[in-house]
Amino acid sequence: MPTAIIADDERLMRDQLRMRLNQVWPELEIVGEAKNGEEAVDLVRELKPDLTFLDIRMPGKTGMEAARDIGSASNIVFVTAYDQYAVEAFERGAIDYVLKPPEPERLGVTVERLKERLAAPKAASAAPDVTAILSQLAEKIAAPKPKHLQWIQASIGSDLRMIPVEEILFFRSDEKYTCVQTEKFEALIRKPVRDLADELDPSLFWQIHRATLVNVNAIEGVTRDLRGRHLVMVKGRPEKLEVSRSFLHLFKQM
């Protein structure tokens, strides 16, 4: 059985990639997981996996740096959200890639390539100079990470869903979880609103309460109840979201 390790600093992303790989390549055995590049290098030395799935951006030793250290000891598969400048370069080389979030159809293409490489005679399947390929990619991959979150990883029952932020109507927190509400479904995450407020585009999401963020494009209007509280009406939703006094200034222009 072919073996692999997964390296990504986000646990939910590791879980999702493991789940997707199991769907499209059930024979592949995931023998280890790493949270950063240093752990990935150590696991490759210890477990000698056939494949190493590396997130490009990780704290400490990045996926790029880890790949240089791993060299030809394992077939490198980069996991990246930055396809605009990376995919073309990957296509030209022997290094494969998986786009975030990993979709079964696209992942299946990568799996077929990897199966062919592993099945080929060793001399024929030997990867070219990984260091040289990485040097060619380094400048394109080194672009800064997007300033704001582009999607949210959330649990719906036993499933993990990648939700584009523009599809989210609002976030609302309680003591343990934050509800992620879209037009079609509700999901839960553990990240509190105060952290989300720092990571989301403030021109798209307004914090209207210490426990609530609302998508500006989902606001239908603002009303007041009998107690004088200001409430945001959300398009297509029955619930109304309370506005704290300290955030009322956001609606003076409306």
Rank of each mutant, 00 (worst) to 15 (best):
T3C: 02
I5V: 00
D8V: 02
E10V: 08
E10S: 04
R11K: 14
M13Y: 06
D15E: 15
D15T: 14
Q16L: 15
Q16F: 12
L17S: 05
W25E: 09
W25N: 04
E27Q: 13
I30G: 01
V31K: 07
A34I: 09
A34S: 09
K35A: 13
V41W: 07
V44P: 08
V44T: 06
E46V: 09
L47E: 09
L51D: 07
T52C: 12
D55S: 07
I56F: 02
R57E: 10
P59R: 06
G60P: 04
M64F: 12
E65S: 03
E65W: 07
A66H: 05
S72D: 14
V77A: 03
F78Y: 08
F78D: 03
T80A: 06
A81Y: 07
Y82K: 12
Q84Y: 10
Q84H: 14
E91H: 08
D96I: 04
K100G: 02
K100T: 02
P101L: 06
P102M: 02
P104E: 06
G108T: 12
V109D: 11
V111I: 06
V111N: 04
R113L: 11
A123H: 12
S125K: 01
I133F: 13
S135Q: 14
Q136D: 15
L137Q: 07
K140W: 10
P144T: 06
K145A: 13
P146I: 08
I152F: 11
Q153H: 11
I163G: 00
V165N: 01
V165W: 04
E166R: 01
I168L: 00
I168E: 01
L169M: 05
L169A: 03
R172E: 11
D174I: 01
K176E: 10
K176L: 09
T178N: 00
V180N: 01
Q181L: 03
E183T: 07
A187R: 00
A187M: 03
A187P: 02
R194E: 07
R194W: 10
D195E: 15
D198Q: 14
E199G: 01
L200Y: 05
F205V: 02
Q207G: 00
R210S: 08
R210V: 11
V216F: 14
R224I: 05
G228S: 03
H230L: 13
M233T: 13
K235E: 14
P238Q: 10
K240C: 10
